[in-house]
């Protein structure tokens, strides 16, 4: 079936199998490979992107369900000028990533979290990230990055 999405502001149209998951549409059709797959039970959050501005796990959304809607991935987060989004910058400054595999999903989850709760407490950040697994950082600096980004955006 034909699926048409706006991804990072650009229209992407393709004829895909009905069962195509959004994450595969993004990675293999739109050729945006930053979004990663880390599990098969909607548990790890590595595939998190924004769908109409809200975080979703793209492995548990059909491309068909996202038809006609707007998706934002990590690659679309920085400004046109190349200037990093506050969350990206905070991750860099606070050493919020090591191997980088969970990072795109983690960043997008935090972008959405801060949109809904611009001044979260540490506890709210931690609970808000219960659907995002990281194995390298122990979350300490990810949480710091989220709080730093929140502060920088005030």
């Amino acid at each position: 079936m034909k699926v048409e999405l706006t991804v990072n502001g650009k229209g992407v149209t393709a004829d895909v199998e009905d069962r195509t998951l959004l994450v595969h549409f993004l990675r293999d059709v739109a050729d945006l490979t930053a979004t990663n797959i880390g599990c098969d039970t909607t548990s790890c959050g590595a595939c998190t992107v924004l769908l109409d501005g809200e975080s979703v796990k793209s492995c548990t959304v059909l491309a068909a369900q996202a038809d006609g809607r707007a998706v934002t991935t990590l690659e679309g987060l920085a400004a046109e000028s190349g200037e990093m989004h506050p969350v990206q910058r905070a991750f860099h400054e606070e050493h919020g990533l090591q191997c980088g595999y969970c990072t795109p999903g983690m960043v997008m989850a935090i972008v959405s979290l801060l949109k809904e709760n611009p001044s979260p407490t540490e506890a709210e950040v931690r609970t808000g990230l219960e659907g995002n697994i990281c194995r390298c950082t122990g979350y300490h600096n990810i949480v710091k990055a989220a709080l730093a980004a929140a502060e920088a955006s005030q």
């Binding site: 959050g45 809200e54 975080s55 979703v56 796990k57 989850a109 959405s112 809904e116 219960e130 659907g131």
Partner: peptide, 9 residues
Amino acid sequence: VGDPQIRHR
């Protein structure tokens, strides 16, 4: 229920 991403869907 679940986590924020799941609650958005």
